[in-house]
Design a protein around this nucleic acid. Structure first.
Lengths: 243, 243
DNA sequence: AAGTGGTCTAGACCACCAG
DNA sequence: TGGTGGTCTAGACCACTTC
């Protein structure tokens, strides 16, 4: 790797790493309260201000949330829609509907070259292939093809996914103690294939929004490739950024 | 408005406001160096740590950038592609090509209802309509329709836009001292219309990526509505997020 | 060597929440 | 009333850039 390694690591960075490790390990489950900043400062042998800086950055990164007067808590993992949601085209202030997942199928496949490359693996590596259908008020709105390396996630089958409520990220967090964060969205317009048309209930050849994205772990390991096809005649994929 | 207003404003928030005002006023142009943290602390009558917190947040917000040992500088305004860039579909590590704008036309129109609503104005408000064509290595890749309130931006014509090099944000910053930030992207797949097909050099009815977004000022005023149509057979719109 | 940003400390006080 | 996060200070020292 050509990454420049700094000659030292600030205390607050070390504390960030330790906190992330303990969150990822499951020691503090979602919404659990952390020790107070002063207690953590004692534990790590630093001042409260240093702990505060570490916690602030983890809050900005979405690992924690704070409530003045109450404490610091572990934030829930990212949803499979991340910061995106579906709205009516042109309406920016609309309250979004929450899509619900339905697991259609779990199978195995070998990785196409571009997927293998994106996942940082070898050509033809074995993958789990999950297919999810997302519905809003019963209506099919999106179809996901999720590809996960078999070597990384052994013993994954439809039963386990269904036990996790159909959510892939929930499954990975509970079963493998892995928090996956989406990164690097790629948007395109594509034509609907025959098979997808049946599942989504649209005509073949209808234009669909394609969103391809990668899922990475805390350590930057790419462990998920996902394509989402979205019906976009009545829905728009809205992306909000604070900063 | 239903926003809760706090009973007090922290010093660092006041300093942030003052700094933003001075940047927006043009007192410090792009890439200008700010006074040192100690000098600003003296000027505002606070400690260096408080200035530091304000500057840190403005850095995170993209207003400033810092270089250790050198100083703090005014960051350039957001480009009209923001954090997005065009890549080949499926390639996540590719070096992006930079699209170049060509101004096709400047005209007037009255706002459609949804645009008027998004801009927070009345029905039928007068708008400037700018049309831009984006090219990568000579090839047309995207077509922008930019709508700006006439009342907010008087005396805007093709000559002035061309003087600014075809960039709308550059024009607004130089001519009106307004920094526009894109927010709230909406992605859809649409069919190409007849007129757009000619301009983009594609067949009518070809599927295109439609990206509608709003541009807001520092004060949260919505001053721009923009639709971008992107050829997406050979290009994907990639969006990167650090956090 | 001087000047800048970057880290860290110890202590103080304020705002907010729960009991 | 006590505990928590949130702000602010004064001072120290480190890392980096420039001269």
């Amino acid at each position: 790797m050509s990454s420049k390694k700094p000659h030292y690591l600030p205390l607050y960075e070390q504390i960030k790493s330790k906190l992330i490790a303990r969150i990822a390990s499951g020691e503090w489950p979602t919404d659990a309260v952390l020790p107070s900043e002063w207690d953590l400062a004692d534990e790590f042998g630093v001042s409260q201000g240093t702990v505060r800086k570490a916690v602030s950055e983890l809050t900005a990164l979405g690992w924690l949330y704070r409530q003045q007067g109450r404490g610091t808590f572990v934030a829930p993992g990212e949803s499979e829609w991340g910061r995106a949601h579906l709205v009516s085209p042109g309406q920016f202030a609309e309250l979004p509907d929450v899509p619900r997942p339905e697991l259609l199928a779990v199978s195995r496949m070998t990785a196409p070259d571009d997927v293998a490359q994106a996942l940082g693996g070898r050509r033809g590596m074995p993958l789990h292939h999950l297919r999810l259908l997302w519905r809003v008020r019963g209506e099919a709105v999106a179809l996901d093809d999720v590809l996960l390396p078999v070597e990384r996630f052994a013993e994954l089958d439809a039963r386990r996914v269904r036990l996790a409520g159909g959510g892939v990220y929930v499954l990975l967090e509970r079963q493998y103690a892995v928090r996956v964060r989406a990164t690097g969205w790629q948007f395109r317009a594509v034509r609907c294939g025959r098979e997808e048309a049946v599942l989504l209930g649209v005509e073949p050849d209808e234009e669909l929004l394609s969103v391809v994205r990668l899922g990475v772990t805390v350590d930057g390991e790419v462990v998920e490739w996902r394509q989402r096809l979205v019906r976009s005649r009545h829905w728009a994929w809205q992306f909000d950024l604070k900063r």
